[in-house]
């Protein structure tokens, strides 16, 4: 967990490693609206992939399809060589965890308890064990607590374990959500706008945190509107527009692609960062 590596691994290196997550032809329709239309995505081990696109492009919906919150109308998703099970809980068990665009912490639990809930699917104490309180129960409870504390320290909240989630400042809440996702021992982490509401310093720290997560062997998929952030962070970027995959490639390619600029200018939203490019 060193912080020394703060630069992307050369894109080629990551893309040579085996595929961990692949989505093929994922389509999600709400009545007449096609929010996600035949999107393909491949993520390799140890890769950081960015997902950009104007508001309403279908990025969050695509995440929901990947994590079982929505059942895609068409298409299939494979994780680590197996087709992804349909239920959110099974997706977590299979090794993919996420954060939410609108933070969904357990507000009245402490930060530490939030992360401990993330350990739920990797622990097994049942009702009888919990009532009898044998050595196995105590060992597991101790390990859960220690791991949760370690993860809090990892995301920089080591001293705030006993704070209620609802009392944490916004940036800390986002990092706590990441810690809670990491607690499920994922192979792939999906982050939905992790820097929304953060100040520039926090955004910088968040970037380092994502590198650290990658260095610990996980693949990361990030949705972001902050272009500078995305292009500095990712090995590869996908741009989604009106539910369709418009461009895919390394940051340089996507950044200079006229269709991407067009999409952002054409949309009602014009990102500040986009002006610079």
């Amino acid at each position: 967990m060193s912080t020394a590596t703060t630069a992307p691994v050369p894109a080629a290196a990551a893309q040579d490693s085996p595929t961990i997550l692949s989505a093929r032809g994922v389509t999600m329709r709400f009545g007449g609206l096609t929010a996600v239309n035949k999107v393909d995505m491949t993520v390799h081990e140890g890769e950081i992939v960015g997902l950009i696109g104007p508001n309403g492009a279908g990025k969050t919906t695509f995440f929901n399809c990947l994590t079982g919150l929505y059942k895609p109308t068409e298409g299939e998703v494979w994780l680590a060589g197996a087709e992804l099970p349909p239920k959110p809980r099974e997706v977590v068990v299979a090794g993919m965890a996420r954060t939410f665009q609108n933070i969904r912490l357990f507000a009245n639990m402490t930060a530490l308890e939030n992360v401990m809930v993330g350990r739920y699917c990797r622990t097994s104490s049942g009702p009888l064990t919990s009532i009898l309180r044998g050595p196995k129960f105590r060992r597991e409870e101790e390990a859960t607590r220690a791991r949760a504390q370690e993860l809090l320290t990892f995301v920089g909240l080591g001293g705030k374990g006993e704070h209620l989630a609802r009392n944490l400042p916004y940036g800390d809440q986002r990092r706590l959500e990441i810690a809670r996702a990491l607690a499920t021992d994922p192979k792939v982490v999906l982050l939905d706008e992790p820097t929304a509401g953060m100040n520039p310093r926090e955004t910088e720290e968040c970037k380092d945190l994502i590198f650290k997560i990658r260095d610990n062997g996980m693949a990361v998929v990030v949705i972001e509107h902050d272009m500078k952030f995305i292009f500095n962070l990712c090995d590869r970027v996908l741009c989604l527009v009106r539910g369709e995959l418009l461009v895919e490639g390394d940051p340089g390619t996507v950044q200079s692609d006229p269709r991407v600029v067009e999409a952002y200018i054409g949309g009602s939203e014009l990102d500040d960062e986009e002006d610079e490019h």
Binding site: R89, C121, S125
Partner: peptide, 23 residues
């Protein structure tokens, strides 16, 4: 216990609990 924490999480936000792997 682990089970009690799961129950609290369900009371707090059932969807999020499910998405975090709570049964």
């Amino acid at each position: 216990s682990r089970i009690g924490r799961g129950w609290i999480a369900i009371r707090e936000d059932e969807k999020a609990a499910e998405a975090m792997g709570v049964n």
